[in-house]
Design a binder for these strands. Structure first.
Lengths: 174, 174
DNA sequence: GCCTATGTAAAACGATCGGTATCCTTAAGG
DNA sequence: CCTTAAGGATACCGATCGTTTTACATAGGC
């Protein structure tokens, strides 16, 4: 990726192997296409809430999993979180793409909060927000430094926060 | 601010009350102007290292001060850290503006590391990197959510990290 | 008074981009 | 075979942007 503003419709139609005309029959405008793209990303990237009928890992693993990034083995520079990037590339808070990014970030924290709450953490909102902030820090710093190593730094902090919150509950909660 | 890409030279010359021609006699290009702007920001925003001949606050205060943001009382939306924004708006890792932002971010962490080292922290590099990551998280998340409240969340995490690192040293170190 | 230098205002240029229209090929259905 | 609908390639349009150039104003040195 190279940023939204630097990506033209011409280029998109080329790599999609679709004419620009067909592109504009499927999407009303570039803004609409960006929104659809972000919506699809949303479903792919949001942390999955624990489902009752699944081999669920421990809450600790669930909360820390967001810091284990599986990178595509490309030569492209590391670009962090697409939603953070959108909120920078589209500064207008009233723009739909910016609002969509904000909604994603809120939902992201909410899911972490839900996992924490189900695990019996005392202040799940606080832990969820803290972990989300750590994630965003790792993503943003990774973008600036062109490195994904920031994830392990964030994870180490997250481990101490999660462990502290979970030991307050007691290792064997009802 | 509204982002680098969205700010034209026309607008700059207008608010600077200077003709576009004079602008181009002082700066070789828009890239050059952006570089100069970032350089000036660098000197203003980097955490100040403790100087021997100053009424120095405690190391704890110094390390946590970066999370106390003094906001101009404008109606403009909160835009986080300009250097993080640049690294997103100029995705090319080879571009001078991108590299300047990366250099700032490294220097930022290095200064925190220096303060931690002078305070006798066991692993100052780790603490400096952790605090820098927290700062970037607060800035990035603040940009996405259009709020500066993320600073207090980051500061609370930072307090626990700093306090843990300083109590390992012992409250009364030699 | 005149020359030069410097700056302003504004036009103009080339490039790029989002978006639309035009022309052509292709393939299915009768 | 003919019609028709859909899509591909591409030219085009208007706008914007970075940059340069042109024309004009102003002020100091001789």
């Amino acid at each position: 990726m190279q940023g939204i503003n630097a990506t033209g419709m011409e280029q998109l139609s080329t790599v999609a192997e679709v004419s620009k005309r067909t592109l504009y029959t499927h999407f009303p405008s570039k803004d609409g296409l960006v929104e659809a793209y972000l919506q699809s990303l949303k479903d792919d990237l949001l942390p999955v809430l624990p489902s009752p009928a699944q081999p669920t890992p421990s809450p600790r693993e669930q909360l820390l999993a967001v810091f284990d990034w599986k990178l595509p083995e490309t030569t492209a520079p590391f670009r962090g979180c697409p939603f953070l990037n959108v909120s920078v590339e589209v500064p207008d808070p009233g723009h739909s793409a910016h609002q969509l990014a904000a909604a994603y970030k809120r939902e992201f924290a909410r899911r972490l909060t839900d996992i924490a709450r189900q695990a019996g953490v005392a202040d799940p909102e606080n832990l969820g927000e803290q972990l989300a902030l750590l994630f965003d820090g790792a993503a943003a710093r990774g973008t600036a430094l062109n490195s994904s190593d920031t994830g392990v730094c964030a994870r180490s902090i997250a481990e101490s926060l999660v462990d502290a919150a979970l030991t307050d509950v007691g290792p064997a909660s009802p």
